[in-house]
């Protein structure tokens, strides 16, 4: 099974192709991220805000995989998050998917190997996903707890989400290099030629 992050080949089949190992690795990290968000409260005590890691994972999945890849990550991340939260089940799915869709649509124009591009994408995704979720929540019967402090929470969440995104790229690249075959480099040796040394 080949591991290909930087697959820039075009064509419709490129969008359907899915690297199973990469997707499973992202899903495992998403599971651990949701668990960490529910149990680790240091950011909440320090800054009054809990960091949201799923949008940044969807950014990575959209830039490194196909449609199916980021759709599965958005689906699982949203359902896991909503199941541990008081959110109506499924309310986070569409915002996460839309974030991944937009990024996947323009991924060939994005400098995805640059950390600053990764930071900006992660920050924008972490800012957009909760906003869209709140728009959906306003159309249901629930009333979330919002106030002026929510602005600070939104800003801090976006900054933290942006800071985490380059870390995901770094970590998944190393995981990929560890578990995949290294490409054999071409050498200048040719077996059909022989150097004859003579006087």
């Amino acid at each position: 099974m080949r591991f290909a992050i930087y697959d820039l080949r075009g064509g419709e089949d490129a969008f359907l192709r899915m690297n199973w190992f990469n997707t499973i690795a992202i899903l495992v990290v998403a599971y651990l991220a949701v668990f960490a968000q529910a149990t680790i409260n240091e950011f909440r005590h320090l800054l009054g805000v809990q960091v949201d890691l799923i949008p940044s994972l969807v950014v990575y999945a959209a830039l490194s995989g196909g449609v199916l890849s980021f759709t599965i990550v958005a689906l699982c991340g949203a359902l896991w998050m909503d199941s541990l939260s008081a959110n109506p089940l499924g309310v986070s799915l569409l915002p996460l998917f839309l974030v991944g869709l937009v990024i996947h649509q323009f991924r060939e124009l994005i400098l995805r190997q640059q950390p600053y591009a990764q930071f900006i994408l992660g920050a924008c995704a972490t800012a957009a996903a909760p906003l869209l979720t709140l728009v959906l929540l306003m159309n249901t019967q629930v009333q979330p707890l919002l106030g002026w402090f929510s602005l600070w929470q939104w800003f801090a969440m976006s900054a933290l989400g942006g800071a985490v995104t380059p870390l995901w790229f770094f970590a998944f690249e190393h995981i990929g290099e560890t578990f995949s075959y290294r490409p054999v480099g071409e050498s200048s040796f040719r077996p059909d030629r022989q150097i004859k040394r003579s006087r």
């Binding site: 419709e12 109506p88 996947h104």
Partner: peptide, 30 residues
């Protein structure tokens, strides 16, 4: 692209179904 439209349609339908489920079913699913 076409796969995008298909995925978008599936996600919208799935979200709509989940949000419209009876509260007891949603609680059990959660």
């Amino acid at each position: 692209k076409r796969p995008h439209y298909i995925a978008l349609g599936v996600v919208i339908v799935f979200t709509f179904v989940l949000l419209k489920l009876p509260s007891r079913a949603v609680a059990n699913l959660k």
